[in-house]
């Protein structure tokens, strides 16, 4: 027990050192490049973050009503989080059930087969035309993406449960509903948590990139405008901010699911 605790601490320490080295290397490369417009160092990005956080007059002249970080972050991550919740919940149910009911498998298979391999981003233009430039088009897109990714993993997790685990429960008198609760759900839980974390990170990425294509509000919209201005530092500041908030959300998921994963050691 104490062995693994020191091991975790050591991994954490080296992880922190890695991030620090990365930071310094970035600063050094930026220093020798010498052009903030091409490769801004961390300090320039930080400066850009501080000055853009509560909004930018320049952007407001360009017709962006809300240019501050908090509103746009809340918009982007809020939409992505709601989409993630809806899509993942549907994906878990559909995936697990499809592993046990052939008719449901037949219904979900075409969708999971195609979009398990094809980037969902390809559907973004169609969603924009159909559901407008508001939040609904992105919400549906990200929810659909999460449904597919989580559905594929939940299904294969339920298919990979050793049959004896369920047979054992059956000989102890558990009916199929009780077996689902006592065996299928907990056995598939660890891979589902892993894919939920993946789906959140990539779902946010998809949300932001769909906002690049067409949106009135959101971090993606700001990134698009800043990229048009050629402001690398501002694009980096926006992307890193989204990444940090996503990281916090990821930590929350990990903390929330940890008790249910302790049996794995």
């Amino acid at each position: 027990m104490s062995q693994s605790v020191t091991e975790v601490a050591r991994a954490g320490r080296w992880g922190a050192i890695g991030v620090l080295v990365f930071w310094c290397a970035w600063e050094a490369v930026a220093f020798f490049t010498g052009k903030d417009a091409v490769l801004p160092g961390p300090r320039v990005v930080l400066w850009e973050f501080q000055h853009g956080f509560f909004g930018d007059r320049g952007l407001e002249y360009l017709g962006i009503r809300h240019s501050d970080y908090p509103v746009n972050l809340a918009w982007t991550l809020g939409t992505a989080a709601v989409a993630w919740l809806i899509g993942s919940a549907l994906g878990i149910v559909a995936g697990l059930k499809a592993a046990r009911r052939q008719w449901l498998r037949d219904v979900t298979e075409p969708v999971l087969f195609v979009f398990g391999a094809v980037p969902v981003l390809v559907a973004a233009p169609l969603f924009l035309v159909w559901f407008g430039a508001g939040p609904l088009s992105k919400l549906l897109l990200v929810a659909f993406y999460c449904f597919v990714v989580v559905g594929v993993v939940a299904q294969s997790a339920a298919l990979n449960i050793p049959p004896t685990a369920e047979e054992y429960a059956a000989t102890l008198g558990l009916d199929s509903k009780a077996r689902f609760r006592a065996v299928v759900l907990p056995a598939a839980f660890p891979p589902i948590v892993a894919v939920l974390r993946l789906a959140l990170a990539t779902g946010i990425s998809l949300e932001v990139s769909a906002e690049l294509l067409g949106s009135r509000v959101g971090i993606g919209r700001l990134i698009a405008v800043r990229a048009q201005q050629g402001n690398v530092a501002a694009v980096l500041a926006l992307a890193i901010t989204v990444g940090l908030v996503a990281l916090v959300l990821d930590l929350v998921i990990r903390a929330a699911t940890r008790p249910a994963l302790r049996w794995q050691g």
Partner: peptide, 11 residues
Amino acid sequence: MVFQQDAIPGW
């Protein structure tokens, strides 16, 4: 039934 494999749920 007691199975040949380890069938007891690990969780």
